[in-house]
Amino acid sequence: MTLTDERKPSEEEAANPELERGAERREAWRGFLHAVPAYAYLIVFFVLPLVIVFVFSFASRGRTGRPLLEDWNVDGWARLTDPLVRTIVGRSLLVAVMNTVFCLVIGYAFAYWIATRRKQSTRTLLLILVLIPFWSNFLVRTYAWRMLLDSDGYITQLGEFTGLWGRTLFTLPAVFLGLLYGYLPFMVLPLYAAIERIDWSLVEAGRDLYASGVKAFLRITLPLSRPGIIAGSILVFVPSLGAYVTPDILGGAKTTLLGNFIVTQFGAARNWPFGSALSGAILIVMLLATILYFRTGGRTV
């Protein structure tokens, strides 16, 4: 029986804390090296461009519309309070919020429906049916609505037949419809991932305790699917705030949204500093959403 050997290892033979820490440092260094290509790339082609947007938003407007990095000013940001700009920003926020809410309500019911199908194969099939439009070209999907909503489109014809609506193309409702159509899958997928993962015995236990199905849903299912709700809402809200293709194709001059307004600054209006300030505003919203996302610990995408 040898609990302790009489020959203890000499000092230099024994591993010491320094060695272990050295091994850990080397492991950490390896991890960093794996990240380096993407890290460096994103710093050069994402972070620095992001910073430069803010720099340019304080630049002055040159004669050609190109910004001059001198005569620093806050004109671009000040213009955000213009009545015209305020209307556009307000309208965009409204559209983004409404779109998020619509996507959430319809998407939740939809994702819940898929996630509660009994057979695994049914769930998989339904999910694939969601994936197809998700992967299909966004432009094409938007274009389809242009066809349907135009004067001789089927939706317009249906409206005229029932006497309920006329041509909706180039109006705000058309933009709403297009955005809902475009972003619904972005809401459904994270929601599905979260609801699918729910341990249904908890819901059953909840039904036991709260008796009513509605209460069990509100107190158990809904909180448990929170990561999906947050992820889906951010994935819909932020991009719809800067939507460009949909309002451009389905909206009209009276429905200008932030995305189109920004593009105009870099095109016809030739006001890059102002365009930069507008983009900067969206970026700030995006960063806040990200902080919210990481704070709430959601990670389902």
Binding site: I52, G259, T290
Partner: peptide, 20 residues
């Protein structure tokens, strides 16, 4: 940083890269 490009609106990313 890796997560941001996923949610950033196209228009904003477009402006950033054009300026850069």
């Amino acid at each position: 940083i890796l997560y941001l490009p996923v949610i950033i609106p196209d228009v904003t990313m477009a402006v950033m890269l054009l300026l850069w």
